[in-house]
């Protein structure tokens, strides 16, 4: 990597100016863990880094409408939880705990979303919670459903002069809970397969809403399995239903094969992880 400039703009407008000025060579720096991993593998040529350190963008704000995470919030800040009334956020806390210790304290919420990697943990959880990404551009803040942010591998739908300032997770109704599980080779690994599940259950035990998202090498972006959600919607969530949802999710993906795992292995494990994520989420429903 050839570092051709390092900037610490004082406010959002300066960030946007720099993005406009440098175009494709500009990279927004959050925690730097992803950029570092690209650089050491020789995947970055000439770059200009725009470090957001002087912008506030840090903190977890909880309101009745939901939880807003500043883009520069360290992933480690999400590792504790869920609290008693925050069970719907369970998947986020689970995912944050899966980040390697060496990464967790540096990586940021905005960075891990902007990287558009299906192998990262937090975005899979955010997608299960219908997360909304706040992108600041010259016309103010644009809200993007996180599913729409992901175009492909390492490819997001941000415009040239936009950068992420927040991720908002709308508060889920009573009877909601979520969980995230991950399968990897060791504690410093990217997901081979991961899964996040969120369920809302009514007083009679019927599932009124569900999200199932699979990460890792099952698709070129975190994959929301509507087939699995269809199995859950309106059903009573017994063992058979969870099993069926797992099977539906596995049938729903065409994972990649590489030196880390074959596609057929990822497919088999995807079904297992979806069932386990659902089981864990269900166990959290108050």
């Amino acid at each position: 990597m050839e570092l051709d400039g390092f900037f610490t703009p004082e406010n959002s407008d300066e960030v946007i100016e720099l993005l406009a000025q440098f175009g494709d060579e500009a990279l927004v720096l959050g925690g730097g863990t992803f950029i570092h991993s690209l650089a050491v593998r020789g995947l970055l040529a000439r770059v200009r880094l725009i470090d957001l350190r002087n912008l506030a963008l840090v903190g977890i704000e909880s309101a009745s409408a939901g939880v807003r995470l500043g883009a520069r919030t360290r992933c480690a800040a999400l590792a504790r939880g869920p609290s008693e009334d925050g069970r719907w956020l369970g998947a986020v806390h689970d995912a944050a705990r899966h980040l390697p210790l060496q990464v967790r304290n540096a990586a940021t919420v905005g960075g891990c979303v902007a990287a558009a990697s299906p192998f990262f943990d937090l975005p899979v959880a955010f997608m299960a919670l219908d997360g909304v990404v706040g992108a600041r551009g010259s016309n103010g803040i644009r809200e993007i459903d996180i599913e729409a942010l992901y175009l492909g591998l390492f490819e997001n739908s941000l415009q040239q002069t936009e950068f992420i300032v927040s991720v908002t997770l709308p508060r889920m109704p009573a009877g909601s809970a979520s969980a995230f599980v991950k399968f990897a080779s060791n504690a410093n690994d990217l997901a081979i397969v991961s899964a996040a599940a969120r369920v809302t259950v009514d007083a009679s035990g019927r599932c009124t809403d569900a999200r199932v998202v699979i990460g890792g090498g099952v698709a070129n972006r975190p994959w929301r399995s509507r087939a699995a959600e269809g199995v859950l919607q309106g059903a009573t969530l017994g063992t058979d239903t969870l099993e069926a949802a797992g099977d539906a999710a596995a049938s729903d993906v065409e994972p990649l094969s590489d030196h880390r795992a074959s596609g057929r292995y990822r497919k088999a494990v995807a079904g297992v992880l979806v069932r386990r994520a659902l089981t864990a989420a269900l166990a959290r429903v108050p």
């Binding site: 593998r41 060791n186 504690a187 030196h259 880390r260």
Partner: peptide, 27 residues
């Protein structure tokens, strides 16, 4: 888990660093 892996066609190393070469951590 550990193994150095190479492309079966051209012999290029597929596990050039500790992201792809996996060894047990304390965990």
């Amino acid at each position: 888990m550990e193994r150095l892996q190479f492309d079966p066609e051209n012999g290029a190393c597929l596990t050039p660093d500790f992201l792809d070469y996996k060894m047990p951590t304390a965990v």
